[in-house]
Amino acid sequence: MIDLGTWNLSIPVGSPPTTIETKQLLQGYDDKYFTSGSSNISFWAPVTGARTANAIYPRTELRETWSNGTLHNWTYTEADNFLNAKLKVIQVPSSGRVVIGQIHVYESTQPLLKLEYQYQDATKDGIIVAKVRFHPNDKKPRIFTIAEGIHLNETFNYVIHLNKAGLLSVKAHNMVWNDRISATWSKQQLYFKAGVYTQDNTGYTSEGGKAMFFNLDVDHNKS
C-alpha cells in the first residue's frame, strides 16, 4: 500500500488544472487519470490534457505535502532527502518521453532535477536520463544517461537522494550517477514530485504517458 497521506495530485483537466487535495486522496480518490489500489497506483496523462500555468505539457503528478495537506517545501541542508520508487512505464507519447520523478523548486518553473524515461524506437526499449540544473540560474539543464535497456511494462526502481552537503545521486535499474550541486541551491525551497509528466502535447486523446507505481516513498532523514 502506497501512503498517499503526504501528497496532493494534479490532474490534466480544467483551467487551471485540478488539484486533488491530500484528504481527498486518502479517502480513495479514483478517476480516469489516477487510480489507487491495494498494491499500486496508476497515472495517465494524455497529450490533449490541460496544462498548468507556464507549462507546455500535461501532467498527472503527485506533489509533496504535510499530512494536513499544506505544501511541504524544504531546503536540502536540513536533512538527507530521498525519493524511492518502484514502477513500470506502460505507455509513452509519440515523443517517447515521460518524466517520472522530480526535485522541483517552490514558485519556479525550472526544476532542479527531472528524471525522464525515454523510449527509443531503434532499440525497442528505453533509457533513464537525469536532467540537472547545477545552479539556480542555469537556463538549461545538463543531461546524463543513468540507465539503459528498460522495456515498456518492465518493472524497475529508482532512488533520488540529495544529501545535506549538496551531493545529488540518482540510482535506476542498478546503475548509479552522482555529482555535487551548487551551494546556492541551499537558499531555495525544494519539493519532490512523482507520477507522469507527459513530454508531448500533440496527437489523439488516446496518446500520452501512463505508468504504474508499486512503491513510492519520501524520507527526510535528519539524524
Rank of each mutant, 00 (worst) to 15 (best):
I2Q: 12
G5N: 13
T6A: 04
T6R: 12
S10Q: 09
P16G: 12
T19S: 12
T19D: 05
I20C: 04
T22P: 03
G28L: 01
G28P: 04
K32G: 12
T35K: 10
G37E: 04
A45T: 00
P46E: 07
T48D: 03
A50T: 13
N54H: 07
N54K: 14
T60C: 13
E61V: 01
R63P: 03
T65S: 05
T65L: 00
L71F: 11
H72A: 12
W74C: 02
T75G: 07
A79R: 02
A79F: 01
N81G: 05
A85P: 02
V92T: 11
R97G: 06
H104R: 08
V105G: 01
Y106W: 10
E107A: 14
Q110Y: 07
L113V: 02
Y117R: 09
Q120L: 04
V129E: 15
H135C: 01
P136S: 11
A147F: 09
E148L: 03
N153I: 01
E154D: 13
T155S: 08
I160M: 11
L162H: 13
K164H: 08
A165M: 00
K171I: 02
A172E: 12
W177P: 00
I181D: 04
Q189D: 15
Y191M: 05
A194Q: 09
T202Q: 08
G203K: 14
Y204N: 14
G208V: 11
F214A: 00
F214Q: 06
N215T: 15
L216N: 13
D219Q: 09
N221C: 05
K222L: 01
